[in-house]
Design a protein around this nucleic acid. Structure first.
Lengths: 188, 188
DNA sequence: TGTTCTTTACCGTCCAGCCGGTATAGTGGA
DNA sequence: TCCACTATACCGGCTGGACGGTAAAGAACA
């Protein structure tokens, strides 16, 4: 039974997409079950058939996000040659070298915010991801200061976008990328 | 008629403090007018006398936060010798060299989150602050990549703490600080 | 006919904002 | 100095709406 590659998404997926879109477009506080259901072209009761509670919906959203992040990072990591700094290089690639990741980031931000608002514990998968990457960077042989600087700069950029605090232009972005790579190669 | 230097704070201030404390301790969603009023030792009606709406309360909270941030930064800036990299050095001092600022950061995080949740536009004062610091760093003569790296790393650390994603140990923190200062002095 | 999915209608709770009222401290005559 | 009036600060009950969640009845399909 081959899967139709362009099968229309099921109600469950549509609900997740809708919830994500709402949070992204109109903020955390406007995510309601009724709104998400409407956006997904389903009734509220229908939504609650798939997600027993709002929390369950957010957990599922968070799970999907964590899976996607992990998969993306895995791909970045695989593309990096082995050797010191590998994990950090993967992070930098994550931040600078994949346009479609920017889009993913923006959606991640929405989910992150919604989850944190509902219950900080929902971020546990993300915490686990960070712990893993940070541990890899150490095991990697990257000097701690360098690893921290490069990865946190990426996080800072992410936060700036999350709260729409500022958006660096292409030139600044390129300079930042060069500086961080220089730091990593120089090793201090 | 000299002002008593240790006069008990007025109701208005108590309400702001209470609201801040609630958001910080129990999250954005548990901030209610009634709760904030109770915590401040006042009735809900009394609170609404001082703040016409919940939004007004959040605006005031945000304003207070922005003022404090600006004042702290001003102090850091004044303490730095003139010359290239001054603004960035002030940012680093802000991030690493003032223990009491850490405390302030933690409170800032709560307010920031609450404000963003209610209405992203409430962050405008913070956006203005970032714009100013970023402009100063450029006018300063700091190479763009270096300025971006140093400041964004600080922001990343802030975000990690905001969402409790991770907390670097003292050694990592020291290494990070040294790396960023090295970067700044080297100028690339 | 049974299972899966979906709808409609409804309940209970929570909370922002409203409003009528109270008390205390001025203020301005007379 | 007494009185009438007003402003400031605060109280606490109420209500209307929003929203999470429930329940029971159908549609689609095997």
């Amino acid at each position: 039974m081959p899967l139709d590659p362009v099968a229309p998404p099921g109600a469950r997926t549509r609900v997740l997409d809708a919830a994500e879109a709402i949070v992204r477009a109109r903020g955390v506080h406007s995510l309601t079950l009724e709104g998400a259901a409407r956006e997904a072209g389903i009734s509220k009761g229908g939504l609650l058939y798939h997600f027993a509670s709002k929390e369950a919906l957010l957990v599922a959203l968070m799970q999907r996000l964590a899976d996607r992040i992990a998969a993306d990072y895995e791909a970045m990591l695989a593309a990096q040659p082995e050797g010191p700094g590998r994990a950090v290089r993967a992070c930098l690639a994550f931040t600078f070298d994949e346009p479609h990741i920017l889009e993913a980031h923006s959606r991640a931000a929405a989910v992150l915010l919604a989850a944190f608002h509902h219950d900080p514990a929902l971020l546990d998968p993300v915490r686990a991801f960070f712990a893993r990457v940070r541990a890899e960077a150490v095991a990697d042989g990257t000097p701690p200061g360098v690893a921290a600087a490069a990865m946190m700069a990426g996080d800072g950029l992410f936060m700036a976008r999350l709260f729409q605090l500022y958006e660096p232009g292409p030139a600044e972005l390129a300079a930042l990328r060069a500086t961080l790579h220089g730091l990593l190669e120089r090793g201090a």
